[in-house]
């Protein structure tokens, strides 16, 4: 039910990689530079139709999360960036996810050019590996140790002080 007043779009439809459709209002969509660019292009052409933006890299699970983030940030779009409530929300938002979801979310933020979400994810990841041993980092990210024992020993010897 898109209300098409003049040549300005108010909503877009975003399609996830698993073919689910999401109706997103323009202000929310504009949090993603990728979606914003699509909207701007269409508006330049003077289209009044509701546009469909397919995102081949983002599943509906992850898209839901990105849109949740965009929605919240759209609400605060006119505030300054230092809003404490928003900061608190950001922090709680990422805490809910496991590292596999966090990975997909980070990739989606990168792909959809949602810079503040990407920064938030990277900061969260960096904070969570602070002070961990190499083995602990591998564990939380589920990464296999693909060094040979000799390589591993060399790495540790090179900067022995940084390993415990």
């Amino acid at each position: 039910m898109a209300s098409s007043s003049s040549s300005s779009l108010s909503r877009v439809v975003v399609k996830s990689s698993d073919n689910n459709l999401f109706v997103v209002n323009k202000k929310v969509a504009s949090q993603s530079q990728l979606l914003k660019q699509c909207i701007d292009n269409m508006e330049e052409k003077g289209t009044n139709d509701v546009i469909l933006i397919p995102l081949s890299n983002v599943t509906s699970n992850i898209l839901t999360l990105v849109l949740e983030y965009c929605e919240k940030h759209a609400d605060f779009a006119d505030d300054d960036n230092n809003n404490q409530e928003l900061k608190q929300w950001d922090h709680e938002f990422l805490k809910k996810f496991d590292y596999a979801t966090l990975n997909s979310l980070t990739m989606a933020a990168d792909y959809m050019v949602t810079k503040s979400l990407l920064n938030l994810c990277c900061q969260f990841i960096a904070d969570s590996i602070k002070d961990l041993t190499v083995q602990q980092i591998r564990q939380i990210f589920d990464i296999k140790n693909d060094f040979t024992p000799q390589e591993e020993a060399d790495i540790k010897n090179e900067n022995a002080w940084a390993f415990r």
Binding site: Q123, I125, I129, D131, V134, I137, E152, A162
Partner: peptide, 22 residues
């Protein structure tokens, strides 16, 4: 993205350990 994460690490020893993961 890996660069971005690494750049967010202020402690040098954390950076060294990140390089030793894989």
């Amino acid at each position: 993205i890996l660069f971005k994460i690494a750049q967010t690490l202020p402690i040098y020893s954390d950076y060294i350990r990140l390089r030793a993961v894989c």
